[in-house]
């Protein structure tokens, strides 16, 4: 996804090959960036989550389970629970004027935003226990405040936090990480925007806590099977550590709020 964007709205003042030469990665190849997690940032929503992965900032609000706003599909579909999603990239998250203009900011949903929302629904459809919410719609509202690479991974983490915060029954919190394969055949975990654009391939993996299973794999670029497998294995390991940090954060939040609950 990131590679495709650079092809269309690429950096106008810095050609990609010179970016690659000048850029130095300051952390080890298999270390993700600093992670900031928060829940309850949106007061009006049923649940919300905020994630910062380095400079990438994403906020997700969950409304639901509530009666659906728009009835879609045939009559048979409306008795099942469903998830809808709206992703918005804030207008200040684009890094050049040209890309803002081409992305049609302010003129409705761009295709990139629509693709991101269908992907997010695809990740969480098997995760949310929809049988417990018949006839209801769980609406996810995602705002990408700043995109410095790995935006989808940040979105997935923030959505897991938001769903947990909203007390919606889910099979597990989902952790997600992106691995880029650079032109020098290195595996870079959690790439930022420059690394994503210069990469030969990008793999984003989302997995639940019991990591024997994977929720979703997203892949861009051409990779041989061995490289693909190693990248996925590396991504799974790193995603597990991120998942553990997310669990610890949630448990610490619980301990902090050890007051009697407000509703009986």
């Amino acid at each position: 996804m990131e590679r495709r964007i650079s092809q269309r709205y690429g950096p106008f003042f810095e050609p990609i090959h010179s970016l690659e030469r000048e850029y130095q990665r300051t952390r080890p190849n298999n270390a993700p960036r600093s992670l900031v997690l928060n829940t309850g940032t949106v007061v009006d929503a049923a649940g919300s989550g905020y994630v910062e992965l380095g400079k990438t900032k994403v906020i997700v609000a969950v409304q639901g389970p509530r009666p659906p706003i728009r009835i879609r599909g045939g009559v048979e579909n409306t008795m099942n629970g469903r998830i809808t999603c709206e992703v918005v990239k804030s207008s200040f998250c684009y890094y050049s004027y040209e890309s803002t203009r081409m992305a049609n900011v302010g003129r409705g949903v761009s295709e990139e935003e629509r693709l991101l929302s269908t992907r997010l629904v695809r990740v969480f459809e098997p995760i949310v226990i929809l049988d417990k919410y018949p006839k209801c719609s769980i609406d996810l509202y995602v705002v990408i405040l700043e995109d410095d690479g790995s935006a989808f991974a940040a979105m997935t983490l923030a959505t897991s936090l938001a769903l947990a915060d909203a007390s919606i029954e889910i099979i597990s919190v989902v952790s997600s990480v992106t691995v880029a394969i650079s032109t020098k055949q290195e595996y870079l975990v959690d790439p930022d925007r420059t690394e994503s654009e210069c990469a030969v391939g990008l793999i984003t993996v989302s997995l639940p806590l019991h990591a024997a299973q994977l929720c979703e794999i997203q892949h861009t670029g051409k990779l041989s099977i061995q490289v693909w497998l190693s990248a996925v294995q590396l991504a799974v390991e790193v995603a597990q550590t991120i998942g553990n940090s997310m669990c610890q954060f949630l448990l610490q939040e619980m301990e902090k709020n050890e007051t009697p609950s407000l509703c009986s």
Binding site: G40, A46, G47, G64, P65, K132, Y133, P134, C136, D165, A166, S167, I168, M254, N257, S261, L262, C263
Partner: peptide
């Protein structure tokens, strides 16, 4: 499991 309640209202169905 008793869900953590942040606000006075619940998200039951």
């Amino acid at each position: 499991i008793q869900p953590r309640t942040r606000s006075q209202r619940s998200t039951c169905v």
